[in-house]
């Protein structure tokens, strides 16, 4: 026990570790909650595309000297509104979303070509830089977390209704398009936040992994949401710990833990049915 306390004290004596834990915790909670709805609505591909579209925004912002996070969020929000307008057709529009995704990545590469000094930063956007989170970024992430969770608290009820029974929700006066747009706006904020931790390419690890695992185990909404948060936190904290011990990239450990969490949950699913 003494050894563990000593180890944790040592871990927390480094500012970069404290920052990493704080950023990872925020990203894990927000992603786990919004990801739960993403999986429930079968919109994982749309969420994946949103994260890639953000890359073009980040690269464009770097080119014109704006904040990378602002550029990423800006373009992701625009795409979110576009996808939201598809309403209940979103999960059936994979071709349109896929083509937009490819075009956005292409644009990102073009912007990088015009501004090659930016290439180093691009790597951290694509694969994350959890151990390089600054105090300023932490504050930005806190604002994003509070804003996205506050927004979700407002729409959670009709969102759950329209996710499980869209036809009935429409008949009861719920605007599927409006809920879809608002939801994708919140998802784009969560994606921008999560990509600071694991990078744009690995956002799935935090957004989808814990939520999809939780849905394999639970029969009630609140239990599922709670398990999704706990799994998200466990994945990030354990990932940071393993990074500290092995010096391997944090993004690798987080994505690997997310993968095994889903693999185990998926295979155990039949047992819980």
């Amino acid at each position: 026990m003494f050894m563990i306390i000593h180890f944790v004290k040592e871990l927390l004596s480094y500012d970069f570790m404290v920052h990493a834990l704080a950023a990872g915790t925020m990203a894990a909670i927000v992603s786990a909650i919004l990801g739960y709805f993403v999986v429930l609505r079968a919109q994982s591909f749309a969420a994946h595309a949103l994260s890639h579209i953000g890359f073009a925004g980040a690269a464009a912002a770097g080119l014109v000297g704006l904040s990378v996070t602002t550029g990423q969020l800006g373009l992701t929000l625009l795409a979110a509104i576009g996808m939201g307008c598809l309403g209940k057709k979103t999960s059936r529009s994979d071709v349109a979303i896929g083509i937009t995704l490819a075009f956005s990545l292409g644009l990102g590469i073009l912007f990088l070509y015009f501004y090659s000094n930016y290439a180093g930063k691009a790597m951290s956007i694509l694969f994350g830089d959890l151990l390089g989170v600054s105090s300023e970024l932490l504050k930005t992430m806190l604002v994003y977390s509070v804003a996205s969770l506050a927004g979700l608290c407002l729409i959670a009820r009709p969102l759950l209704f329209s996710s499980l029974e869209p036809e009935l929700a429409e008949a009861k006066g719920v605007s599927l398009e409006l809920i879809s747009i608002l939801f994708f706006i919140l998802v784009s904020v969560a994606i921008t936040e999560a990509s600071q931790v694991v990078g744009i390419l690995l956002v799935f690890a935090l957004l989808i992994g814990p939520a999809a695992s939780a849905l394999c185990w639970t029969r009630s909404f609140w239990n599922g949401l709670l398990l999704s948060i706990l799994l998200g936190l466990a994945i990030v904290w354990l990932g940071i710990l393993l990074t500290y011990l092995t010096d391997w990239p944090a993004s690798f450990w987080i994505s690997a833990l997310s993968f095994f969490s889903y693999l185990i949950s998926r295979n155990s699913r039949n047992l819980t049915q």
């Binding site: 209704f161 329209s162 499980l164 029974e165 006066g173 394999c216 029969r219 909404f221």
Partner: peptide, 19 residues
Amino acid sequence: ASTNLLSGRAYLSAVSQGF
């Protein structure tokens, strides 16, 4: 949309005042 283990009660409760 998705395959999940949510119970009949969860589907029923989601509709109650879901709007």
